[in-house]
């Protein structure tokens, strides 16, 4: 009996060495350890043994069975690992092939830049105001201290609907609309489309976008104007940007300024982009004219404020190095998809 068991053990060990796949392994298991297997058959013959030998042989048989099961499992593990390895090798793919893209759309570049500008001002506690594009002459000009027949109207070639209604030539009428409705403190930006009768070319469009800003409160100073706009510009263009406030004239602000930033290309040395000046004008601003405050029922002795206006197209053109404004309104997908 002992020998038989020993023999089975040896046979299994020998067979295992030769087994090269999982099927062969399973066959070995069935042949020797299965219900009808050889070891089982041996054990079934245990009844014929003397009673005192049975526990000894039984223990031995169990030991061998356990041993063989471990062996088989070990072999199985080994074979599985090999198979896995082989499968992984077969599964190698060319990862440099292009991915499958779920195509998403793109925001218009003007919207993207508008969003960055909005975000900066939202972060500074500004709200966003909105108003009509077909506007009364009163809001577009008169309330802004530009009476009829004033020469300042020349600088903005205006589209008229009738004597009293225009296509707004600037977002500044929103200053008046906001001040008429809201009491200080006021901190708003008013982005939107504006219209001027300029023929279309690489740098002009009869339709373009402006962003107006207005702050009115007690004790607002020109230093606040400088600080706020400097912060905005550095957020937009980077903290190393140099900012210059230069006196200018607008009818509805006094004092007024134009703001230049150091040239993006040459950094201030002077180049073709900045026409050798080293500076590029990006916005107009100033302290709200006392007449404008009065026109809106705000006492200029008690309150002061500042306003600014910037052209969105110009900022976007600089940001993306776009040299022709018409591209914005042509909406060629080959252009739109670049942003």
């Amino acid at each position: 009996m002992k020998e038989k068991i020993q023999r089975i053990k040896e046979l299994v060990e020998e067979n295992l060495r030769g087994a090269s796949d999982l099927e062969a392994l399973e066959n070995i298991r069935i042949k020797f350890l299965g219900k009808k297997g050889e070891l089982t058959a041996v054990l079934k013959g245990m009844g014929a043994l003397p009673a005192e030998e049975r526990p000894v042989i039984g223990a031995m048989a169990n030991e061998v069975r356990a041993f063989l099961e471990r062996e088989i499992d070990g072999k199985k593990e080994e074979l599985s690992a090999k198979l896995r390895e082989a499968k992984l090798k077969r599964e190698v793919i060319d990862v440099t092939m292009p991915g499958r893209v779920q195509e998403t759309g793109k925001l218009h570049p003007l919207t993207s830049v508008m969003n960055s500008v909005k975000d900066i001002f939202l972060g500074m506690g500004f709200q966003i105001a909105d108003g009509p594009e077909v506007e009364y002459d009163y809001y577009n000009f008169e309330a802004l201290n530009i009476p009829p027949d004033h020469p300042a109207r020349d600088s903005q070639d205006t589209f008229y609907i009738n004597d009293n209604v225009v296509l707004r030539s600037q977002t500044s009428p929103m200053q008046i609309r906001v001040m008429e409705k809201q009491k200080p403190p006021i901190r708003i930006i008013a982005p939107g489309m504006v219209y001027r009768s300029d023929a279309v070319d690489a740098t002009h469009s009869p339709v373009f976008h402006q962003i107006e800003g207005l702050v009115v409160d007690k004790g607002i100073t020109m230093a606040d104007l400088k600080g706020t706009l400097e912060m905005f510009i550095k957020s937009l263009y980077g903290s190393e940007t140099k900012v210059r406030f230069r006196p200018h004239h607008f009818q509805f602000t006094e004092p007024s300024a134009e703001v230049d930033v150091s040239c993006f290309v040459c950094g201030g040395e002077g180049c073709r982009v900045c026409k050798g000046e080293g500076w590029i004008e990006i916005l107009g601003c100033g302290m709200v004219h006392p007449k404008v405050l009065s026109n809106c029922g705000i006492d200029p002795e008690e309150y002061s404020g500042f306003a600014f206006g910037l052209g969105l197209e110009r900022i976007a053109m600089r940001k993306y190095d776009i040299d022709d404004l018409r591209l914005f309104y042509e909406n060629d997908l080959r252009f739109l998809k670049q942003f």
Partner: peptide, 25 residues
Amino acid sequence: SEEIARFYGYDLIPTTLLSGETTIG
């Protein structure tokens, strides 16, 4: 104020941040 500011120098006017009542953006 403008006459004074432009000959005092716009660049010499300090830069300050808005103070006063807080507004929510």
